[in-house]
Design a protein around this nucleic acid. Sequence first.
DNA 1: TTATTTACCAAACGGTTGTTTGATAAAAAA
DNA 2: TTTTTTATCAAACAACCGTTTGGTAAATAA
Lengths: 205, 205
Amino acid sequence: MTVVFYTSYFVHSKSYINNTMPKAKVSETFILNQALKIFSQKSYYHATMADIAEACGLLKGSMYHYYPSKEDLMKAVIAYVHDYFNKEVFAHAYDQKVSTRERLRKMGEVTEKMFIGPQEGCIMGNIGIETARVIPEFSDLICNFFNDWVDALTYVLKDKYSDKTAREVAEQCVSEIEGAVMMMRIYNEPRYLKDALKRVAKRAY
Amino acid sequence: MTVVFYTSYFVHSKSYINNTMPKAKVSETFILNQALKIFSQKSYYHATMADIAEACGLLKGSMYHYYPSKEDLMKAVIAYVHDYFNKEVFAHAYDQKVSTRERLRKMGEVTEKMFIGPQEGCIMGNIGIETARVIPEFSDLICNFFNDWVDALTYVLKDKYSDKTAREVAEQCVSEIEGAVMMMRIYNEPRYLKDALKRVAKRAY
DNA sequence: TTATTTACCAAACGGTTGTTTGATAAAAAA
DNA sequence: TTTTTTATCAAACAACCGTTTGGTAAATAA
């Protein structure tokens, strides 16, 4: 499991080091969450810096106080989401305290919460498809995310399957969930994801 | 099964009606194929009219002789692909002359050819995700495409499952294939799609 | 206090891109 | 033949968008 930490520009400011944030309309986390929402809803190219700034209550020029470019902002969002999944979803796979079934149930529960709601889909899949042959730097980060996901599921499924089969089934699960999220987004029906997650959970019974 | 025919601007020209095409660098089919390739590779917003025109050996202004806008061109491409799948993929589902297994095998064979190659993915899924909350007109057309796909698979699977189960399995198959195509595009590995198609084919044994 | 840094705004800049316009040369029609 | 239509080009237009710049007021540091 690779944990990716994006070097935020907050880190370089004295106010962050001293933990005494001066008057500020927004926080780093707030910007990342708003950017995540706008990028998810509108896709990368159709989301403008003005859109994201507006969602933060700022003007677009002010965004460059936090991130030097739109691409860097997107990378920060990807890292933010990756980190969130590492802690809130993938970590459950390695939790020795609960049963295999319970680990998968918990992973599915949080995944559902992440993909349904204001995001309306999986930003990793969306941006991955959109920028696949255009911005390879995004693709690399997104591949790392999916690798961690597959690793986590493989680890759980080793309790039920051989090592080789576990990895195959894990890849199928991720692929099936992403396909369902795609259908959910296009049809605007959460049912697709909910059903897919139920099927995935059953594979550990 | 709904067959969508896009009203091309060729239809309105006398030369088409009389079947005497004057000097022309390109044909309508050629433009649609080149546009399909560029849109698939670069996504909708990153593909420029200049890109597509260049792939056709034209200047971007000349594209407007054939289609009044980029959106109309995209709609024509969607209709073109939908029509192609109706004839070359979905039609096999209703072919009473061959066995259930053979129908699915044939559908999978052509699907693989369509998604692997210069297209490197499924334009319906790609554009569907990218423009889901931006251009609803695209979403409607793309939903029709997926509806026809699910209908075709449901029809075949009724030989093996109950009506209700057949539709559920059909939806799973389409969703699983689209997820695999997404992974194939992001990882740049055709293996994901090939494996998914094998699993889908097995459901009819 | 004074000096410096911070968070943000307002406006402008420069490049890109979808679209329009006017012209041209070849083909088709009359 | 003459006239009209067609396919294309070359150039310009207008809007948009990522980015930069210069300034301001508040907070912090000295």
